[in-house]
Lab assay of single mutants.
Amino acid sequence: LVRYRTISKIPQITLNFVDLKGDPFLASPTSDREIIAPKIKERTHNVTEKVTQVLSLGADVLPEYKLQAPRIHRWTILHYSPFKAVWDWLILLLVIYTAVFTPYSAAFLLKETEEGPPATECGYACQPLAVVDLIVDIMFIVDILINFRTTYVNANEEVVSHPGRIAVHYFKGWFLIDMVAAIPFDLLIFGSGSEELIGLLKTARLLRLVRVARKLDRYSEYGAAVLFLLMCTFALIAHWLACIWYAIGNMEQPHMDSRIGWLHNLGDQIGKPYNSSGLGGPSIKDKYVTALYFTFSSLTSVGFGNVSPNTNSEKIFSICVMLIGSLMYASIFGNVSAIIQRLYSGTARYHTQMLRVREFIRFHQIPNPLRQRLEEYFQHAWSYTNGIDMNAVLKGFPECLQADICLHLNRSLLQHCKPFRGATKGCLRALAMKFKTTHAPPGDTLVHAGDLLTALYFISRGSIEILRGDVVVAILGKNDIFGEPLNLYARPGKSNGDVRALTYCDLHKIHR
């Protein structure tokens, strides 16, 4: 019993810090008490220290592992850092350059016999395009090294910054494609005289377009951006097909006994025919423009016929181009109408809503002055909100995010209106959640004399007048207030005048 009563005193000691020596009952000389009392004092002292730490809000209350900052290894790049964003855009520009100039170089340097010394005699450094290609190869190699040090988000939505895990993730992902696209074939085969082989191998750079397509997928929600990307894709495919079309004609031209190829026909049409040795002929500019003209006309199913396939190889390629053109029509131009419709969806919704308003007016036989006010209010409210119901949009977000959005939407009023000066951010967040926005066209009466005042109004834009009878008592403008002081009276009061809008007004109100 003594032991039980001794232990039962522990909660009292913990909360009230009572010393055991003052209790005459606990001072009985028993061996059990002498053993338990020192333990009680020690526990009391420890609990006292913990309570003191909690009340003082000291940093040592938290466990040590929670006080440590997340460790980022040296030379690790955050995937959302500004440097990584700028670097990704730079790589994107280099990939676009590669997609345009690599097929052009591979096709127009394929057994090209233009006048001038061969590239091997001039030297590697004197070729501007080769120098640019070398810079692109170096940048792609540097990009691989950067990807080995860039964080990523795993399946659990955690940012991984450990170098080993980053390397394994990159090896399992895009490393092989990036490595093949970054191989400097110019340096590996330079001086061997195989410019045709170098041009063909350099087309491996186009593998990076797969990554670019995935990154550009984030802009699919913007109709104008999608339309622009589709047109660029169409032009890029036409450019690639033009390079292939020229390569076919250029390879067949020296081996044909009869002059029936499209390059021969082009030379005869523009007065620059090929001679018996295969030299001469149109310039590279004429060849490229004509090839691009043929691919565009074939892809769009126009086909004027002034550039036509004559050999079997050219006919087979033309059939493939027609098939590609039909697929592009289905996948690209078939979506253009939907994209344009999405661009004008706001206008369509406006006309639909206006039609419903006019049908309501016609069905209920609203008189002319009231009908005009109804239409003007709808037009003004639509121009202010673009038909978007803010309350319906915010309803799907958590309250903390709703408060931040409301604070942002009402920031101008909260910053410049005098009653809100000096208020804490928590108070402003709470008030912003209570605001209701209303609009009024010129001549609209917001409050009639004798109406119950259940709200306090803040003028965000425009001006109003307060009338008693036919006498203008006051004219209020931006950041002015009218209405009933909230919670100042037990019952809502009545208006002693009319409140009429002089201009288009936007008002925020808080109800009782």
Rank of each mutant, 00 (worst) to 15 (best):
L207Q: 01
R74F: 08
L206Q: 01
I248G: 01
S313W: 04
R358H: 15
Q415G: 11
Y219F: 14
C126M: 01
A181T: 04
L279G: 14
G281K: 01
H162Q: 10
Q269W: 01
V321Q: 06
S194I: 10
V180M: 13
A224T: 12
N391I: 07
Y124V: 05
P309C: 01
I340P: 01
L431V: 06
K215Y: 03
F175S: 01
E121Q: 11
M251G: 01
R74V: 05
F363E: 01
C122T: 01
V302Q: 03
D178E: 03
S194V: 15
K84F: 04
L401N: 01
N310M: 01
V393D: 01
G267Q: 01
H439D: 01
D88W: 01
R373F: 01
P442W: 01
L374G: 03
L201F: 07
N265V: 15
V447P: 02
W240D: 01
A69C: 04
W89S: 03
L216E: 01
I138K: 01
E158T: 10
R74A: 08
Q127S: 08
A119M: 05
F171Y: 04
A440K: 03
I96V: 12
I96K: 01
G199A: 11
H73R: 12
F228L: 04
Y293D: 01
W262M: 01
A130Y: 04
K202Q: 01
G426D: 04
I198T: 12
S298V: 13
S276I: 06
L94P: 07
N368M: 08
H264A: 14
L145G: 05
I284V: 09
C126P: 01
D268A: 09
A381D: 14
H79Y: 01
P163N: 03
G199I: 06
G193M: 04
Y246S: 01
Q253I: 15
V142G: 05
L230W: 09
N391G: 12
S81D: 01
F228K: 01
P82T: 07
F397R: 02
I183E: 01
E64K: 12
W75R: 04
G305R: 02
D137A: 06
F175A: 06
F304R: 01
G267M: 01
L129C: 04
L187Y: 10
L206D: 01
T102Q: 01
V142A: 08
E114R: 15
I183H: 01
R74D: 06
I332K: 03
P254L: 05
V357W: 01
Q68T: 14
L197A: 04
L327H: 01
I366A: 02
L197I: 11
T98I: 08
T233A: 14
V447H: 01
M433D: 01
L263C: 01
W174F: 10
A338G: 03
G422T: 09
P282R: 01
Y219K: 04
F175L: 08
V210E: 08
K272F: 01
I138P: 01
G249A: 03
G281C: 01
A440I: 13
A235W: 01
F296Y: 04
R356N: 13
G346L: 03
T424S: 11
A348P: 08
T300D: 01
Q379S: 10
K215C: 04
I198Q: 03
G261E: 01
I340C: 03
H79K: 01
S331P: 03
P282T: 01
P442E: 05
M231E: 11
A432M: 10
H380R: 12
R165S: 08
V289Q: 01
G334L: 03
T295G: 01
G116F: 14
L109N: 07
R205N: 01
I260K: 05
A106P: 01
L206F: 01
L145F: 10
A423Y: 01
I141D: 03
Y104H: 01
T290G: 01
L370F: 02
I244W: 01
N265F: 04
G305S: 12
K84N: 05
P273A: 01
L209W: 01
M433V: 07
S337F: 01
P117A: 13
K215D: 03
R218I: 05
N386Q: 14
L327F: 01
L241A: 01
H73P: 14
T120L: 04
P118I: 05
P367I: 01
E359P: 03
A348H: 06
T347S: 10
F140R: 01
W382G: 02
Q365F: 01
S337E: 06
P103H: 01
A204F: 13
Y350C: 01
R342N: 04
T385Y: 14
K436P: 02
A348M: 13
V307K: 01
L216K: 04
N310P: 01
F397E: 01
Y288P: 01
W87G: 03
I248M: 01
I177M: 04
L355Y: 06
K202P: 01
L343W: 05
L110R: 15
G193D: 04
M231G: 05
S313T: 14
T300L: 14
E114C: 04
F101P: 01
P309N: 01
L209S: 13
G116A: 13
F190K: 14
Y80H: 09
Y288I: 01
F171D: 01
C417D: 06
Y288W: 01
V289W: 01
M328P: 01
A238K: 01
Q379W: 04
L370C: 03
V447F: 04
D178S: 01
A392N: 07
I388N: 06
Q68N: 14
M433N: 01
N312G: 01
E158S: 09
K202L: 01
N386F: 06
W75Y: 06
A238H: 01
V136H: 01
T290L: 01
R421V: 09
H169T: 05
M231V: 05
P82L: 08
F378D: 04
D88A: 01
Q68G: 13
N154L: 05
L414Q: 01
Y219R: 08
S283T: 05
L409W: 03
E195C: 15
F185L: 09
V210R: 14
K172N: 03
N310E: 03
D257W: 01
F190E: 12
K436T: 12
L236N: 01
F101D: 01
L67F: 15
S383Q: 10
F101R: 09
V336E: 03
K425V: 07
L78D: 05
H364Q: 03
F360A: 03
C417N: 07
V168W: 13
R74Q: 09
M390Q: 09
T311C: 01
S326W: 07
G271I: 01
E114M: 13
S220C: 13
L431S: 02
L90Q: 01
C126Y: 01
S301E: 01
V321D: 01
L413M: 10
R429P: 01
A182K: 01
N391W: 05
V142T: 05
K418F: 05
I248E: 01
N306Q: 01
L343M: 04
A106N: 03
Y350I: 01
K172D: 01
H239I: 01
I72M: 14
I284M: 11
G123W: 15
E121P: 14
M256G: 14
R218M: 09
K66M: 10
Q253W: 06
N156M: 13
V357K: 03
I177R: 01
L292D: 01
K215R: 14
F101Y: 14
V142N: 01
S220G: 05
W245I: 01
D257N: 07
A99H: 01
W382M: 07
V95C: 03
I324Q: 01
N386P: 01
D444T: 06
N265D: 12
L401M: 08
R259N: 14
P309H: 01
R165G: 05
S383G: 08
V136L: 01
L92D: 01
N368I: 05
C417M: 13
C122S: 01
I96E: 01
L266W: 01
I189W: 13
L236W: 01
R74I: 03
T445D: 03
H448A: 09
